[in-house]
Simulated assay, not measured.
Amino acid sequence: MVWEPTDAAWEENLSAARAYYAEAGTLAAPVTATMLDKPVGQWLANCRKKGGLGKNQTVARRRAAQLAAIDPDWNPGALGWTVDWQRTYAAIAGLVATGAGLEEIVPGVTADGVDVGRWLQRQRQHVVWQGLKAGQRERLSGLGVTPLPPEQRAGAGKAPRGGSAAFERGCAALAQYRARTGSVTVPRGHIERLEDGTEIKLGVFLSNTKTRRAGLAADQLKVLAALGLDWATA
């Protein structure tokens, strides 16, 4: 027997929220998100609204604590930023947690259809960084993200120029791999160690570079073509 239907519905939706967090690593869900046959995205959006946790303040505090126990950042608006910002940050945190280096998250790298590389590049711009809330800067810094100096500008949507240290290291790793194996076909999980001990996730570098080919500079394409990558000349 269900004595309080609203409590039963709350628990069902809370279970869906837990399942969503286990899969996505965040409760900053889009309103279209579903889980366990529940419209969890819309439900969370409703919870964030004024009075969305109920009119009874004791109940509302208990429910807020339950959501915070799943994800302390479940309500980004209360922290001073948007759900979209939190969701993209969580996507990058997820990539880092699974082994991706920040140097690999470049424009053209996507997660759930969002160009997280371009987003990350923009956050690093000096003007944008200074405009972030302290909590946002703290979260990004926790991932190892640092702002660009005022005189530098990261062109939105453009890949690093040929002088980029990350690009040069990737090309050096490819040249070394090609010299040793005679091939430029690299398994995605392959890690190439340079002479100075630097480890380059060469397979990931090539995959990401090919994905953002349209944004590469002409001199970068020439370097890649010279190394034997046919798609760089197509």
Rank of each mutant, 00 (worst) to 15 (best):
L202M: 13
A214T: 14
V114G: 11
R178L: 07
A45G: 04
L53D: 09
L95P: 02
H190T: 03
L206I: 04
K50F: 04
R18M: 08
A165E: 12
T88P: 05
K49P: 06
I191L: 04
Y89H: 06
V59P: 09
F167G: 14
Q86A: 07
L174A: 02
W10G: 03
V128T: 01
K55R: 12
G157H: 02
V186W: 08
W129A: 02
Q152H: 15
F205Q: 15
D219A: 13
E168Q: 15
G155E: 05
A97K: 14
G170C: 14
A175S: 14
T98Y: 08
D196L: 04
W3R: 13
V128D: 00
A29G: 06
D196V: 02
S183C: 03
S207F: 08
S141F: 09
E151M: 02
Q121C: 11
P76Y: 00
L36Q: 15
G162T: 12
E138C: 03
D219F: 15
V96S: 03
I105K: 08
T185I: 15
G215W: 01
V127K: 00
E199H: 11
R62A: 08
K50Y: 03
A100M: 10
Q176W: 14
V31R: 09
K133S: 09
A111I: 06
P76E: 01
W74H: 03
S141H: 12
A156T: 05
T88I: 07
Y89A: 01
L227P: 04
V109S: 07
P30E: 09
G163A: 10
R213I: 03
K38L: 12
G144R: 11
K222C: 10
G162R: 11
P107H: 04
E138Y: 06
K49E: 13
L221Y: 00
A225V: 09
A166F: 11
W129I: 03
A17F: 01
V114Q: 10
A154Y: 09
V116K: 00
R213C: 07
